[in-house]
């Protein structure tokens, strides 16, 4: 029997073990928010969570699969409208509607991809925007859902969710927390899977990945469809919180794409932690600068440009590079392991 070097593949690093512990604590605190936060705090946290989810999904799409879309509002709005349609026209329970909206949007995203994938690079980006515009214009043609001026969720359906307003608010907050955690967990699982390796290979060098037998288009399609799935569920949730939908709010490029892109770029694109950091910065800037009105958006645009040009890996990229931190264990590394009991050679 030959002497072998034992090793196993691990994802964790020291900092990521601390990170996992921290995440558990943060999740606990967030889950208990209804008991320590007031109404306004809950609303803010729920909104923040939805942005973490949207930005993480966009990050998966653009930062990992190289599909730079500026049309994700198509799926936010689609999710919202699907929820309103199911509740108003079919009497579906709103929370059930969220979970039905996901697969429907995923199905819709397949023909959309068939069209937009014909466009390369930056033209793909604008192509996705056209699709979102088409969705917006179609939504304003649907008169049972209020046409161009939109529609509110019927009071009966709202009350059916929970009898009191407070109970409803708790319910929606927990839903936002659960969905966001679900989306993040799904993304981490995906990135740690075989497809995740393929994605990393594609991100690093698409041509090389292709020649190594990775079906690049297929992997991209899978990511696109999954992203549509998640984005539509979050979209449904967002408009369930707003209780009102209209084509312009549902398919707003500013709200669901510009902000999301800025969040991701500022936090760090192509890193799982980026969108989380980015969302916190974004909300902080919004709370402090919102008095400035449109100037505030102007500043956001300028900050995003500066970050893109001078710190293209974003804030988390700077931190991770300087300190070697990694909150969520994604990279694989080998651990040489001499103390492990020697197992038998395959032939033995």
């Amino acid at each position: 029997m030959s002497e072998q070097v034992r090793y196993r593949v691990e994802h964790a690093t020291r900092s990521s073990r601390i990170g996992v512990g921290l995440i558990a604590i943060v999740l606990m605190v967030l889950a208990l928010a209804p008991f320590w936060g007031d109404r306004q705090m809950l609303r803010l946290l729920a909104e923040l969570l939805t942005f973490v989810a949207l930005a993480s999904l966009w990050n998966l799409l653009a930062g990992y699969a190289g599909l730079v879309s500026v049309g994700q509002q198509a799926f936010v709005g689609l999710g919202g409208y699907l929820l309103f349609a199911m509740v108003i026209l079919a009497g579906v329970h709103p929370i059930a509607a969220i979970f039905i909206a996901g697969p429907i949007a995923a199905a819709v995203s397949i023909p959309v991809a068939a069209l937009t994938f014909r466009l390369r690079g930056a033209y793909f980006a604008i192509g996705t925007w056209v699709v979102a515009e088409v969705f917006r214009l179609l939504a304003s043609q649907v008169s049972v859902l209020g046409g161009g001026s939109g529609v509110s969720l019927p009071a009966a359906a709202v009350i059916a969710m929970a009898p009191t307003r407070q109970a409803r608010e708790f319910e929606i907050y927990w839903l936002a927390l659960a969905l966001t955690v679900l989306v993040l967990a799904a993304i981490v699982t995906l990135l740690r899977s075989r497809h995740g390796l393929a994605l990393t290979a594609i991100r690093d060098n698409e041509v090389a990945a292709q020649s190594n037998g990775i079906d690049v288009t297929r992997v991209k399609l899978i990511v696109y469809v999954l992203t549509a799935f998640g984005t539509a569920m979050i979209g449904a949730l967002i408009f369930l919180m707003k209780l009102r939908i209209s084509p312009d709010t549902a398919f707003s490029v500013n709200d669901w794409t510009a902000f999301v892109i800025f969040i991701t770029v500022i936090g760090g694109i192509g890193r799982i932690e980026g969108p989380i950091i980015g969302t916190i910065i974004f909300f902080f800037m919004r709370q402090t600068l919102s008095d400035l009105g449109s100037l505030y958006l102007l500043i956001m645009g300028a900050v995003a440009i500066v970050v893109m040009l001078w710190a293209p890996k974003g804030l988390w990229g700077l931190i991770a590079e300087r300190y070697g931190w990694q909150a969520l264990p994604l990279q694989r590394h080998l651990v040489f392991d001499d103390t492990a009991p020697r197992s038998r050679d395959k032939r033995a």
Binding site: V70, A258, L297, G301, A304, M308
Partner: peptide, 21 residues
């Protein structure tokens, strides 16, 4: 691909809101 796309996207937001202001 990202830098030109994101920088011109940021520029778009800056011009729109600058004009609005």
């Amino acid at each position: 691909l990202l830098p030109p796309l994101l920088v011109t996207f940021g520029l778009s937001i800056i011009i729109q809101n600058g004009l609005l202001e």
